[in-house]
Amino acid sequence: MKKDKWGYGIHPDRQIDLDNANLSLLELVRQSEPSYNLCIACGSCAATCTAGNLTTISLRRINIYLQRGMIKELREEIRRCMLCGKCYLACPRGVNTRHVIIAIHEALKATGYEEL
C-alpha cells in the first residue's frame, strides 16, 4: 500500500528473532571482559556520558544492541565514544566499561564487521 496515497504506512518489522541474531560479537566481548555480564542495564553510564551531552550515545543501548546482534547500529554508535571513563566511575556494578568498549571494537575487527 502506498504511503503517499493514504498518509500512513506500515512500520518496518521490528521483531528481533534471537534465534537468528548474530551473537558472535557478544560472545567475544564476554570472553574478553567478563565484568560485562554484571550489567543490569540501569543506565547510569548513559546518564553521565560526556559524548551523550552532545549526541545520541548510550552505553546501555550499545549493550542492548550487542545482545540483540544489531551490529550496524552498534557500530555507528560506539564510534562516538571518547573513552573518557566517566561511565566506568558511575557504574554501580563495577562493569569495566572502557574495556567493554575496547573489546567491542576488537570484536568488530575480529569478525570483519568493522567496515560500514
Binding site: 555507528e76 564510534r79 562516538r80 571518547m82 575496547i102 571494537h105 576488537e106 575487527k109 568493522e114
Partner: peptide, 10 residues
C-alpha cells in the same frame, strides 16, 4: 590497539 575509526562529527 585496534583503531576506533572515531566519528566525532557531532
Amino acid at each position: 590497539s585496534t583503531s576506533f575509526k572515531s566519528d566525532f562529527s557531532y
